[in-house]
C-alpha cells in the first residue's frame, strides 16, 4: 500500500504542476497515469509541437514544457504509478480513500485530485465478432512483456509504426508472426516497412495484405483469427494471440461511475475551489467543467493553485494555512 497526502489521477501538465502547488503547502503527492510516461497528451500526441500560450514562454515545445514541469515538481519528491489505470475508489471511515489500479496497486490518500484531461488513453478496438469474449484470453492491445509471446502463434493487425515494429521484434521471439494489414502498402516508417517486406520474403513472417479482421473463434481461449481477404474470401489463421494495434483514444473510464456530476464527459466543479460534489475529491484541468470554462493549460495551472488551498484543511485539519510567496522564501523553505 502506498500512502500519500494527495493522489493525483493524471500526470499531464496540470497534474504535474499540482505537485508543485501542493508542495508549497507541505502536501505530498502520488500520481497515477494510464500511459507509461508522464506528460499526458503533450508527450503522447504532440511532443514536438510548439505551444504559444504559456505565460512567460513566447514559444515552448510540448515535451520541453513537460520536462520543465517535472523539474519544477522535483523538490517535492512526487511518486508515480505509470501504465496503470485507476479502477476503484473506496471511501474509508475517516474520510480518506483507497484507490486500486488495473494492476492492483493500492494507494491510500487523504484527498483525490482528478487531473485526467480528456480521460485515459485506451487502445482503439476493431469492430469484430466475439472480440470481448477473448480479451485477456488471447487478445491483447499492447505488448507489455515480449516473453509472453515466446514460441506462440501471434497475429498482429494494423499498418502503423507500432504494428511494423512489433512484427519485426516478435519475429525473433514467437513461433509464427502474421501481420494483417488492410492495404498493400504501409504508411509507417519506410525503414520498418522495408524490414517487414524483407522478413516476409525470407519466410520469417506471414504478411497478409488487403485483408481485414472479421472474427475470432476458440474454445475458452483464442484459437483462430478469421480474415476477409482481397476478393472477399475467408482466410483462417491458427493463433494463440491477436494484437490489434490501431492507436489510442481517450475515454473517461471508471471515473464516470464514482458518483460525480458529469456533463458532456467533463466533471462539474464549484469554481470557488474546483471541488466536485464529493468531499475530498477535486477536478482540475481539461476534465472539469463550469460556466466559462476554457480548456487551456494555463487555466489548469490556476485551478491547481486554488484547489490546493482548499485541500489543505483535509491534510492538516489542525493547522492554519499561512500563505507564503516563493520569491520571499525560495522553494526549499516549503
Amino acid at each position: 500500500m502506498i500512502h500519500t497526502d494527495l493522489c493525483i489521477i493524471g500526470a499531464g501538465p496540470v497534474g504535474l504542476f499540482a505537485v508543485f502547488e501542493a508542495g508549497l503547502l507541505k502536501m505530498r503527492c502520488h500520481l497515477i497515469d494510464a500511459l507509461p510516461q508522464v506528460g499526458g497528451q503533450l508527450s503522447e500526441i504532440y511532443p514536438q509541437k510548439p505551444i504559444y500560450d504559456i505565460p512567460g514562454y513566447p514559444e515552448v515545445n510540448a515535451q520541453d514544457l513537460v520536462d520543465n514541469l517535472m523539474e519544477q515538481a522535483k523538490p517535492f519528491q512526487p511518486t508515480f504509478t505509470l501504465g496503470e489505470r485507476v479502477e476503484h475508489l473506496d471511501k474509508q471511515t475517516d474520510g480518506s480513500f483507497i484507490i486500486t489500479t488495473s494492476d492492483k496497486t493500492h494507494i491510500h490518500a487523504k484527498v483525490i485530485v482528478i487531473a485526467g484531461g480528456l480521460g485515459c488513453f485506451e487502445p482503439r478496438k476493431p469492430v469484430l465478432g466475439n472480440l470481448e469474449k477473448f480479451e485477456g484470453k488471447g487478445i491483447t492491445y499492447m505488448v507489455k512483456n515480449p516473453e509472453t509471446f515466446r514460441d506462440k502463434k501471434v497475429v498482429l493487425a494494423g499498418g502503423g509504426d507500432s504494428a511494423l515494429d512489433w512484427a519485426i521484434f516478435l519475429a525473433k521471439v514467437a513461433k509464427r508472426v502474421s501481420l494483417v494489414h488492410r492495404n498493400e502498402t504501409f504508411r509507417g516508417s519506410p525503414d520498418s516497412a522495408g524490414k517487414v517486406f524483407d522478413l516476409a520474403n525470407k519466410g520469417k513472417i506471414d504478411l497478409i495484405l488487403s485483408a481485414n479482421l472479421k472474427e475470432v473463434t476458440g474454445n475458452g481461449k483464442l484459437e483462430k483469427v478469421v480474415l476477409e481477404g482481397k476478393y472477399k474470401e475467408e482466410i483462417i489463421i491458427d493463433a494463440d494471440y491477436l494484437i490489434p494495434l490501431f492507436g489510442l483514444s481517450p475515454k473517461l473510464g471508471p471515473i464516470a461511475d464514482w458518483g460525480l456530476s458529469i456533463d458532456k464527459n467533463a466533471i462539474e466543479v464549484d469554481t470557488r475551489d474546483y471541488s466536485t460534489g464529493v468531499e475530498r475529491i477535486y477536478a482540475i484541468g481539461d476534465i472539469n467543467t463550469y460556466p466559462g470554462k476554457l480548456k487551456l493549460i494555463l487555466c489548469g495551472f490556476h485551478e491547481a493553485a486554488i484547489m490546493m488551498h482548499s485541500a489543505f484543511k483535509f491534510v492538516y485539519p489542525d493547522q492554519k494555512l499561512s500563505f507564503k510567496y516563493t520569491t520571499v522564501n525560495g522553494v526549499n523553505a516549503f
Partner: peptide, 13 residues
C-alpha cells in the same frame, strides 16, 4: 495531406 492520411490509416476502420 500525408499527415491526415497517416492518422486515418491508424483507425480500425
Amino acid at each position: 495531406t500525408d499527415v491526415e492520411l497517416d492518422q486515418l490509416e491508424s483507425l480500425p476502420e
